[in-house]
């Protein structure tokens, strides 16, 4: 018989988890769990996390990182000024999740726990060097997202642990970022493949510290060091973009499934990177032209 506990405080959840009751399911928004018809069939205890006070809120933590509570919804992330200013890439990625209805229910913690290879938030979190905070009776431990996600539906969360929050280091300076996704349609779709990128932008047209990550082209979200190496410290040109795109295609280990084909996925990650970088390139050209005009006017 299914029992539902809607708990208000983190320590209550942790207490139950440490009791190691079998067939306990943690749920926040439910947008990944409830569409599956058999999801609740074998569950005896469902813990509804959506009201847990400690899992709410977006703010800077003691170390100056952005802390996003695990039960914060995708739409709250999209709308939050701190995210828009300091982690715009995540805002972009979360805005492409499902529909607004789904974004109003689904949470960042749930997206992590579900560990879908196609999850939109994950490539962004990887690029932003985000860490997952896991709470347990032993306290809180931090794991980089890439270490937390182990495979489709598999994470490094221990049975008595709970995703408490996501922490994102704040980086200063001029940044560029994009999240691009190929779906089965434009509105509300699951990614056939996705690419996230962020980097520092310099006045001379160089990008530094680029981070590139891809979704739905491997068993987990993957970062693409080869593409990052191509982009790092180089003036962005269409030739550089082409080279980085090829590195993305090379890195994809895609499969065929009902949504798309392996070969298309391999192809399209390069295309998505090209699109995103070309827009950045055009943007930087535009800035440079404007700057030149200003300089001419001054002289």
């Amino acid at each position: 018989m299914l029992r539902i506990l809607r708990l208000p405080a983190l320590d209550q959840v942790i207490e139950i988890l440490s009791a190691q009751e079998s067939e306990t399911l943690l749920m926040a928004g439910g947008t990944d769990i409830l569409p599956r018809p058999a999801a609740l069939a074998s569950t005896r205890l469902l813990i509804d996390l959506s009201q847990v006070a400690e899992l709410q809120g977006i703010a800077l933590d003691a170390e100056g990182r952005i802390r996003i509570g695990a039960a914060v919804t995708h739409q709250e992330i999209v709308d939050h000024p701190l995210i828009q200013r300091k982690a715009q890439l995540l805002s972009m990625a979360c805005s492409s999740i499902g529909s607004v209805q789904i974004r109003n229910l689904g949470t960042i913690g749930g997206n992590l726990a579900n560990a879908s290879p196609a999850a939109d938030s994950l490539p962004a979190l990887v690029c932003l060097a985000a860490e997952v905070a896991l709470a347990s009776p032993r306290g809180i431990r931090f794991l980089p997202v890439s270490a937390f996600i182990l495979g489709p539906g598999r994470t490094a969360r221990a049975a008595d642990e709970l995703i408490e929050s996501v922490r994102i280091p704040v980086v200063t300076g001029r940044r560029v970022a994009f999240f691009k996704k190929a779906g089965q349609r434009r509105g509300m779709c699951c990614a056939k493949a996705s690419v996230a990128m962020c980097a520092h932008r310099h006045g001379d047209g160089r990008l530094t510290k680029p981070r590139v990550a891809m979704g739905a082209v491997a068993a987990t979200v993957i970062s693409v060091p080869a593409a990052e190496r191509v982009l790092a410290d180089r003036v962005l040109t269409m030739a550089v973009i082409e080279e980085a795109a090829a590195a993305c295609c090379e890195a994809a280990q895609a499969i065929d499934d009902i949504r798309s084909t392996a070969s298309y996925r391999r192809h399209v990650v390069g295309a998505l990177l090209t699109e995103g970088l070309a827009e950045i390139y055009d943007h930087m050209q535009d800035l440079a032209r404007r700057q030149a005009r200003r300089r001419r006017r001054r002289s």
Partner: peptide
């Protein structure tokens, strides 16, 4: 551009709107 009921040996592969894709407002 979007719709096809997929069958594999007489079994339906896409029986809900997550996999049977209808055009949305953006399409």
């Amino acid at each position: 551009l979007f719709e096809e009921v997929l069958l594999d040996r007489g079994r339906f592969l896409n029986t809900n709107f997550d996999t049977y894709i209808l055009p949305s407002s953006k399409d």
